[in-house]
Amino acid sequence: MRYGTRLAVGPVQFRIGSDWAAPIAALNRLYAGYPRDEDRPADATVRLFAARPWRRRLRPSVQIGGDFTVPDALPLPLSMGLLAAEMGMNLQVALGWRRHLLLHASAVAKDGRAAILSGESGSGKSTLAALLGEDGWRLMGDEFTLVDPASGDALAFPRAVSLKNAAIAEVAARVDPARLGPLLAGTPKGDIRHLIPRADAVAAMHDPVRPALLLFPRFGGEAAVEPMGEGEAFVRLTEASTNYVALGETGFAALLRLVRETPAFAVSYPDSATGMALVDRLWAEAAR
C-alpha cells in the first residue's frame, strides 16, 4: 500500500497500510514514544483503503480491512482515519490473537499487582483506568487485558486510550496537552480524543503483573460494592473474552485460575472521583 507504518502495542506487532498519508502520520504521532523494531515480522496487518479508486480523493472514505474484516463495516470519512486505524487494530487483536486469553477489560497496576476492570462500553472502565493511570497507577490498557495461560499473569495492551464524550474534558484537565490526539468530533461513537499513556506505562508494557482484583464497574447509580461469586465472575469473563472458545482447554484453565485466585467485586459509582475512591478502598483491603 502507498503509506504504512509498523508499531508494537504490548506483545502485538502491527503492520498498518493506508491509501492516504494522514492516518499514518496521526498514528506515528500518537505512538512516537513506543518501542519500534522495524525488522520484526508483523503479527497482524491492518489496511485502510478506499472502497472504490475514486474514493481516494473524491469525498474520501476509509474502509477498514486487514487479516480479519467485518462484513458490511461502514466506511469512515478520512477526517476520522485515526479512528479507523484504531478500530482496525482492535479488530485484528479481538479476532486473531491466540497467545493469551483476551479479556475485553481495562487494567491498572501498582506494586507488581493488577486490578482488572471488565464491563461493557459505557461502564466507564476506560475512563476509570485512564484517570487511575494519572493518579499513581500504571495504566496497562483501556480496552484489552491479556492473561498468560502459563503463568496466570496479566499482560498489558497499552494502546492510546480512546476517550469518549464527557471523559475528554475530565481527563484533558489533568494532562499535558501534548499527550492528547486530535479531537474527532461526531464519530459513530460520539466525540473521541486519544490520550497517549504516560512514558513509564509504555516503558513497562512488557512487564507481566499478577492479577489481584477483578472489578465489574457500572457507571451511574449510588456508590455500592458487592462481592461477586466465582461462578458469576467466570460466566461474565467468558462473555468478555473474544477468544475463550478458540483457546479450548487452555482458556478454560486460565480463566478458572483467574477467578479462583482473584477476589471479584461489582462496583457501581455515580462519578469518577467516587469510582476511583472505591477502587483504592478495595485495593487497600485486597492488599491486606
Partner: peptide
C-alpha cells in the same frame, strides 16, 4: 524461523488443534 514467526506459528498450531476437535 525468526522468533516472532515461530511464536505466531505455535499459536496457530494450538488453535488448529482446538478447531479440529
Amino acid at each position: 524461523l525468526p522468533p516472532p514467526v515461530a511464536a505466531l506459528f505455535a499459536d496457530q498450531r494450538a488453535a488448529v488443534a482446538v478447531a479440529q476437535a
